[in-house]
Design a protein around this nucleic acid. Sequence first.
DNA 1: CTACGAGTTCGAGCGCACTCCAAGTCAATG
DNA 2: CATTGACTTGGAGTGCGCTCGAACTCGTAG
Lengths: 142, 142
Amino acid sequence: MKIGELARRSGLSAHTIRYYERIGLLPYADRDRSRQRDYDASILTWIDFLGRLKTTGMPIREMLRYAALREAGSGTEADRRSLLERHREQVRARVAELEACLLVLDTKIAGYADIEKRIEDHDAHQRTRRNQQAGARQAGSR
Amino acid sequence: MKIGELARRSGLSAHTIRYYERIGLLPYADRDRSRQRDYDASILTWIDFLGRLKTTGMPIREMLRYAALREAGSGTEADRRSLLERHREQVRARVAELEACLLVLDTKIAGYADIEKRIEDHDAHQRTRRNQQAGARQAGSR
DNA sequence: CTACGAGTTCGAGCGCACTCCAAGTCAATG
DNA sequence: CATTGACTTGGAGTGCGCTCGAACTCGTAG
């Protein structure tokens, strides 16, 4: 698979794929006779996992540490595991934080809803009064 | 309250407070006789809410839109509400996304735990075999 | 042979959200 | 009166994670 197809299938741009290789997030890819990168489909699994790390807010620095352990092969499982466990805790904390903010947002939104409702009621009341006055005028003009 | 105290109480740096005022996120603060900013405690509520928006990933661009509506005063409640409602949906989506990633992390971590367990078992087995051989040698040597 | 499309490298540029620096002002203290 | 420390402004610099451009090389189709 060449870089263009990998880009389409991974959702990254070819630029980003090269950038990731440059910084060491992706392993140095084999090149064909004309020095073009030639990828194995298995790289998609790795890119996908990197995407998870990224989505959960892991900085590239730390992904690099994980990638390096992975490259180092067996014997690094305990380190990789504890790195992911620490990250998992951070993600859990983040979720809790977002949920706390959601409550604040709910309250704020409910506050605006109240204000809007009060305005509507007020308007409806005003209309009713105008109509009553108009009715009274009509009745009086007969 | 001067900027230093506000910085301490809000958790922002004085630099950041001035930056926020410059871009319009904080209202232009009144100055005292010697042109120093003089804040009312009520600003803390606003900074706190801005913090919630920031924590939930709202870009400054959008906070500015909200801040502008707020400055515009009454009549903008419906807009402010819908802005916050749209944001709330994004935050909810983000939480869902993080939770999906947490499942992937759990699986990955469990995988490493398995590998480590297999290695431990293997080592324990090796030790047992060595002990048995040592025992057999001792018994034979008697 | 030419033209194309997709790839290559290297380095510069960008958007975001700060963060910091230099040079100056001011009020209070010794 | 001199010093100290907290403040002022305007503008430059930073770190992150890309993103893009220029100039070039290939392999294939017409």
